[in-house]
Design a binder for these strands. Sequence first.
DNA 1: ACATATCATGCACACGTTAACAATCCAAAA
DNA 2: TTTTGGATTGTTAACGTGTGCATGATATGT
Lengths: 335, 335
Amino acid sequence: MNVTIKDIARLAQVSHTTVSRALNDSPLINSETKEKIKQLAQEMGYTPNFSAKSLVMDRSYNIGLFFSTLNTGTSAGFFYETVRGINSVVKDAYNLVVRGIDDYEHYRSIHRKSFDGVIVMSQSAKDEPFLHHLSEAGIPHIVLNRKVEGLPAINILSDDSHGSYKVVNYMIKKGHRRIAIISGKEIFHSTLERRDGFVRALQDAGIELKESYQVGASYDLKSGYTAMLKLLALPERPTAVFCMNDDMAVGAVKAVHDAGLQVPGDVSVAGFDDSMFSAYLSPALTTVKRPIEEISRQGALVLLESIEQKTLAPETIYLRTELVVRESVAEPAKA
Amino acid sequence: MNVTIKDIARLAQVSHTTVSRALNDSPLINSETKEKIKQLAQEMGYTPNFSAKSLVMDRSYNIGLFFSTLNTGTSAGFFYETVRGINSVVKDAYNLVVRGIDDYEHYRSIHRKSFDGVIVMSQSAKDEPFLHHLSEAGIPHIVLNRKVEGLPAINILSDDSHGSYKVVNYMIKKGHRRIAIISGKEIFHSTLERRDGFVRALQDAGIELKESYQVGASYDLKSGYTAMLKLLALPERPTAVFCMNDDMAVGAVKAVHDAGLQVPGDVSVAGFDDSMFSAYLSPALTTVKRPIEEISRQGALVLLESIEQKTLAPETIYLRTELVVRESVAEPAKA
DNA sequence: ACATATCATGCACACGTTAACAATCCAAAA
DNA sequence: TTTTGGATTGTTAACGTGTGCATGATATGT
């Protein structure tokens, strides 16, 4: 049997009310008795019953971390860094509950009583109904990784468009003109952003966009592999390929090798994310660093703050992406 | 304001007790009224208040997933697959709460009221005090990934020793005699297991163990890189190197390349885990498949069962590992 | 010495749910 | 008719905690 404040009250010869106040540092209580009670609680190994607390305080002490999906399209490194970033902030003040949005058929079971706040790692516009639900239910929430258009929200995301601009621009500076792109899932918002940077960089350099140099994939290794195969089969194959994430870049590099060609000798390849392994590939991957852990940490901080203060001003915070130059992009071979 | 069973009771002209019974499918209630109430609840958008439920039922509806650490040593793929496996079983019957054991200074706040059950993804013997705490606190729990010695527990793990035996044996069959090993953190139990298989394979083949062919690392990419550098600097360098996980193998391969050598031409390399990316490296990594997602799924199933039935018989379930032959191990060059 | 302000504590209820026990109704048995 | 008993429903308390209000004690000011 667990000790309750009533047990403490009995031993301390006071009412359970006094104990409750003492443990919550109420200014109403004499500091001596307060100390006495606190020490007693400590000795008896008291821990509050959060169910009871929740019931009366109308709080759940749960923070929800929702991904668009936990199945396909979410890369392991991305997932890991997100959880780590948030966990480092949340500690044990709250329970961090991890979920996939697509696990739900309806959102009825998600309400203010079950989550004090929600962090949405939003990858796709498909999440919109879920975000609407959070708004209607009055659950404090923040959206990471994606700018949501319809409704006001707190957004924290990286400047993906600018990031991909930088890496493509870098390719151009190296002398590439035949530059292709391997895209991720069309439904993901970051896909649009990254393509936008690609297109802008090409336009600014006066390079024409070729339809055949844009091939779709789905952010996983295999899709990057097959996409690159398509590009290599082209009559005039590109000299540089920008992949929308590192996973696909790994697949793409593999495809180049399997075709008996070299990276970057025959084809330059760049990725996006700066996954942990990208520095250790051969050749080391030139990519764009995206501060996922930092985004997550900041997001958690903002959310906790807004939970305490009950005041959440819609805002959008952009965190900088950073070009990471390694070995996989070089000057094109003289044609 | 949320609707409660009392609100439903008022509209249905019954007592709140009847509503509670109806919604819980009690056989005491007339099936007509039961239907009527259920429908009404549906229309009113009723969702139970879990705090109240928890308080009276003495359950938290929380399942804890504890990793030894969320910081260093836990690889992203491992983490991701674990969460996925468990999540696929737990669904929304429980909240899945993710934590790192090393986040805690004391375990006082972890008790039967805060977790209905706990899944420990245990990587190190350092977890022992935590496991003891769970036992003492009477919290149903299972231990994944590691055989715990001291106290009775439900264990689900892969047969790592046998797995590494298989891959090292494969190297020997290919003709290697100078075989080295790159170890992970000594504190991790799997490190001992995998070394055991390595040693046995060598002994069975009558190959002498060389001290200089055993170098320590810490399961991350970088440590694999530097460990391989040491091996390459040896006067008589090994022809094959077994890395205790795929991450280190990636680092090791990189080191070989940076030294101007080839895999598997000059040095064969094998890993462990069969991470998602290992098939897409160049050369594709020969490794041992470890069914992490399956272990997690099974573990979750067993835990849920034992929570319902209140009966948990200590047992140890081993899941098979599997040699995955790819390109990174070949016959040694004629010396 | 008395009124008043300040401080410290206790009483009683509330939160939403379940469950032991009591109560009612109606049909069947005596 | 009276009794028994099953089927339904209601009454009440309980879970552990926080809080508005009342109460008592002590110090302050006149």
